[in-house]
Design a protein around this nucleic acid. Structure first.
Lengths: 161, 161
DNA sequence: TAAATCTAGGACTAAAACAGTCCGACCGGA
DNA sequence: TCCGGTCGGACTGTTTTAGTCCTAGATTTA
């Protein structure tokens, strides 16, 4: 509960990767997927969404790939999460007000709305550039490294209990 | 995405109800359920959890019901949400660190952890008492009101699309 | 003491969201 | 023209969530 989806995770990882390696031109979906052990078609989907919303810019054809649509400082984590997972809604009452007419059913709504806005501010205040600042180390070295077992490793460590 | 479950909603509503009507002694699950058009068995489940964790105190037998386990100021919304929905985890990496050993798979983790803690602080800073302060109006008047059609009304207004 | 009324709590079902896969189409460079 | 890349929808299996049902235990009232 109250957690990010994996898609959002993947999206943020990809955005950070692009921000860090911006100097090297484009990066293909395949490249990113292999680097972080993300299922390629799933990542492709996420990147497509980010592309359509303008956060990324795609280049087709051979040696194509993705690059950031605008400066990393101009892309907030909120932007990314919202385009990938849709709008963030804390309670159900926020969307349809028709259901709330029943007496004081939603008296808790207003206080929660503050929490909601707080979270939005929090996410909105962090840009992809900020993400890229931390843990700058070892981005490309481990990516080109050979990864002998394609699936085994992922299955062993991927348990998100 | 990033939203509270209905159970958590119900729990907060119930807690607020008990905080507002604390002077009137206990309130039964049935009473609260009818007041807010919440399915009784579901609410009962939520109340049981809150009871077991000490946030509520139950009184059995005829004229039994629930009352707050401690002062409303001492119960944060974070307490309630966490006991109902389990721990709040923003990303999957927080729980098992074994999955993160793969190169820099989780370089976005640390920044997100800040967001995570921010949300926790936000929720932890709001108590049930705070909820009860806003929208004090019309708590019991509408509760005792006759509700002629037991189900019809719920179906009409309960749509939380 | 017996009945009524309430909570306690597990087992179960249905629906929705999520994670991931597959396939065909389009585009651009070699 | 061919190949490697993106684009984008349709599809499936799994998990979570919402809600129901039923039985047991406790306490008050008659």
């Amino acid at each position: 509960m109250l957690k990010l989806t994996k898609k959002a995770d993947y999206g943020l990882i990809a955005l950070k990767h692009l921000a860090v390696n911006a100097s090297q031109g484009v990066a293909s979906a395949k490249e990113i997927a292999e680097c972080y052990q993300i299922p390629l078609p799933l990542l492709a989907k996420v990147l497509q969404k980010l592309n359509k919303s303008g956060l990324l810019r795609s280049e087709q054809g051979t040696n194509g790939g993705y690059r950031l649509g605008r400066d990393a400082r101009e892309i907030s984590t909120l932007d990314a999460i919202r385009t990938i997972d849709g709008p963030i809604i804390l309670t159900h009452c926020f969307t349809d007000h028709g259901g709330c007419n029943q007496s004081m059913t939603c008296t808790v709504r207003e206080p929660l709305r503050k929490v909601h806005e707080g979270i939005l501010n929090l996410l909105g205040g962090i840009s992809i550039w900020d993400l890229a600042q931390e843990g700058m180390s070892a981005p490309r070295g481990s990516c080109e490294a050979p990864i002998p077992p394609p699936h085994k490793l992922y299955e062993l460590t991927g348990k998100t209990v």
